[in-house]
Each structure stands twice: as structure tokens, then as C-alpha cells.
Amino acid sequence: MGSETCTEERLADLMRAALSGDDAAYTAFLRCAADLVRRMARRRVGEGSTILPEDIVQETLLAVHLKRHTWRAKEPILPWLMSIARYKIVDAFRRRGQRVYVSVDDLAEVLAAPVKEGEVDDARQIERAVAGLSHGQQRVVRAIAIEGRSIPETANALQMKETAVRVAFHRGLATIAARIGRQT
């Protein structure tokens, strides 16, 4: 869906229809909202953060769903939507113990073309999955899969037996595969 269709008027019309029981309009509203929030989240969550912009999108959509009775039909809907997204971004950073300043002039930038859900997240997702492994598995997986060392080299560097390295590597990969598979 192109951004030119996700205007203030269209969003407000869709939400009004949704609130009077039109499920299709509600789905269309959520799609529009997802595009706009994704764009804002991509801008706000810089490279190198373990926060996935798509997580922000989903948390915001869920919040929008649970709190849609806090939009008043007389009021503009974009500022409402964006302040929910901003709250969720700040919340995501705070839960990771980081502080972030999210400026209030996000409206202009979301009106440019939205971005689709996609590959940009993959590298972060893998990094996050690796970070979720046990310490021993993490060292082995990093050495082999990221630094490109061989199994004997790794065993030597980490002072482990080769069989132990092999086992840790395979378990680590299986854990990562399971984790990423579950999320997508």
C-alpha cells in the first residue's frame, strides 16, 4: 500500500468505519498504520541496536488495538497514532536500560514513502539470537560462524576439546534456528 493513500483523512475515515463495526476497514487501517510506524521506527532505532523496528511496529499495533477507544473521532488521528508509537519506542529503549530522545516532529517524515517489512532486520535478528546463547556456545558460534575459524583453531583458542567445540557449535546453531524459526 503506497503512502499517498495513508493520509490523515483516510486513516480517520478508516478508523471511524472500524469503530462502527467495519472489520475490513479496520484491517486496512492497521496496514496503513503499520507502514507509517515502520518508517518512524526505522528512523529512530539506529544501526547496531538489538531492538528490531518490526517489534516496535507490532507492539504499537497491539497498543493501538487495545487503546483504540482513546482516539476521539473529532481529533486528528496521526498525532494520536504517532504518540503511541513514540511511547512504544521509548519503552523499548527503557526496557534495555538505554535512554532515548524521540522528537515530536515525526509527522513530516512518516508522510514520505513507507518501508516494507524485510531483510534489514535479519542481521539484527541473528545477532540477537547469538546474544541469547549461553556464554560457552556464544564463544564457539562467534569464532566459527562469524570470525570464520576452523574447529581445531577454535578448540585451541578456547582450550576445549574438538568434540566439545563441535557439540557446542551444533547446539548453538540449533538454538538459533529454533529461535528465528519461531519468530517468523
Binding site: G21, H65, R68
Partner: peptide, 22 residues
């Protein structure tokens, strides 16, 4: 979960609604 799946789930839940917080 894919965002599209989430949107489908939420869209199907449109009938549940709350009072105005005011």
C-alpha cells in the same frame, strides 16, 4: 510472528471495544 498475521488477528477482533476513558 509476521506483522501481516498480527494485523489479520487484530482485524478479526474488531468487535471487542471499551468505554471512553473519560
Amino acid at each position: 510472528m509476521k506483522t501481516d498475521d498480527l494485523i489479520a488477528k487484530l482485524g478479526a477482533d474488531n468487535s471487542r471495544r471499551s468505554w471512553s476513558p473519560a
